[in-house]
Write a protein that binds this DNA or RNA. Structure first.
Length: 112
DNA sequence: TGGGTGACCATAG
DNA sequence: ACTATGGCCACCC
């Protein structure tokens, strides 16, 4: 069992907790899991999120600016935006509008 | 051992 | 809006 697989599961577990219509960013997840892991590792974990058995709502994870930087890793480049818009989030030019309003922080919402 | 890369982040100019 | 740096950590040459 490789160590990084445990980290993957932790990331997926947090992402699954993101409520519908809310979003968070890679750094917040990394912080929640501990500063030992950087946000780069979260993005790296998301790279393998698409074929997880319990589905991972990867579209609810964006970068710190609310930009859909991960859209190219979906089946189609439009899927990520479509999923978010279906949850009531407005997106203009790959950027989430009212990002602070939709933002969901695991460290705060999960009451660490 | 070392360089390049990445769904990142912060700061500076 | 843009680039450049430095930090971050694991992976793959």
């Amino acid at each position: 069992m490789k160590q990084h697989e445990d980290f993957f599961q932790l990331v997926y577990q947090v992402v699954r907790l993101i409520p519908k219509g809310r979003v968070t960013n890679y750094g917040a997840i990394a912080k929640y899991l501990g500063s030992a892991r950087s946000s780069r590792m979260v993005g790296w974990a998301m790279n393998a999120a698409h074929n997880q058995k319990p589905k991972v709502p990867a579209h609810r994870v964006v970068n710190r600016n609310g930009e859909l930087t991960g859209k190219h890793h979906f089946e189609t480049p439009f899927l990520m935006q479509e999923l978010l818009e279906k949850e009531g989030i407005k997106i203009v030019k790959d950027k989430i509008q009212n990002f602070d309003k939709h933002f969901w922080s695991p460290t705060k919402e999960l009451e660490l």
